[in-house]
Design a binder for these strands. Sequence first.
DNA 1: TCATTCATGTAAATAGTTACATGATTGC
DNA 2: GCAATCATGTAACTATTTACATGAATGA
Lengths: 180, 180
Amino acid sequence: MKHRTSLAVLGVLSYEPATGYDIRKFLEETTSVFWKESYGQIYPTLLSLESAGRIKLLESKGDKRDKKMYAITDAGRSELSRWIRSRDFTLKPGRNELLLKIFFSTKEDTHWLIPQVQDYEAQLVRQTGIYAGFRDSMQADGFPADRRALITATIVFGEQAVAMQLHWCHETLAILETID
Amino acid sequence: MKHRTSLAVLGVLSYEPATGYDIRKFLEETTSVFWKESYGQIYPTLLSLESAGRIKLLESKGDKRDKKMYAITDAGRSELSRWIRSRDFTLKPGRNELLLKIFFSTKEDTHWLIPQVQDYEAQLVRQTGIYAGFRDSMQADGFPADRRALITATIVFGEQAVAMQLHWCHETLAILETID
DNA sequence: TCATTCATGTAAATAGTTACATGATTGC
DNA sequence: GCAATCATGTAACTATTTACATGAATGA
């Protein structure tokens, strides 16, 4: 399977059964710096994973809500493991429209760029909160002990990425204010 | 216009006339950390930009090759400026499949992750070369003086991003080797 | 009561990659 | 002569977002 949304979904379900809604939220709260999924991807993927036997729908015992809990199957687990162990992965660089603007701007644009860099900074600060929250929940919730070191490595990645960018904003604002 | 490929193309042409091939190469050599385009996007975009009057096809004087040089028009320039000055931009976070694998791995997977982190490291080292080359060419080629400070800011972003990730690889390999 | 969060989904549009086809030119 | 690079494009596929529709439950 080369469908990455499937793998992300299987990954989340490898922790515990969840609904489509839960999966999106989980990814948002944990991996969002390097991986996100939208409902438009998740719900169709759940259906196809189920029909392929990688996950199964749990009986909802006493749930009033119209919710669908899915659990990973053995077939799903071995698929996940095969992917993790295979030596290939792709980096999709991502697109940063602000950087692109700056790249193509002239000194006459400087004045308009300042508030945009400030907005960017604000978005980064919001992300900082996500990590703080996640570090807390990793302590509280039952993240398996043998997974902690590796999960922490990914959090560290996110924290460092955000810190680096905040630092860059600071520097860049100083430059922009000099030009303006 | 909310079509970002168009804006990227206009941006490149704001420096100097170029062919579709040139545009792809330019972006690869300069903005690739935060922006890339493929031929499949560029060529159709050039046609639509031309029919919208944002760019125009230059007469090829004495060019043996079957090449199409495009130049930006006034309409194209004002469109570019409008975009740069408008206070909105989106960040498409990008996807890092290696991080996702690590996030969902268990300690049994450690052994298989080590070479993957090493591959990642190697890819980063290759990127370092791109920046070195770009810094050089910025000196040599005629990048307008008033644009240098801002362009440099985007190079710095890329350099810091790569440096941060190399550092992370180093740390992470140390952790993985402890577990293994 | 009322806003927020939970919850599932679809449709339409947009974006973007990859593989292929084709051939000229340049530099070794 | 031959490999690499220049050069343009298309077709098929895959991925992804966004907006919309709908409504229940929770908590203040």
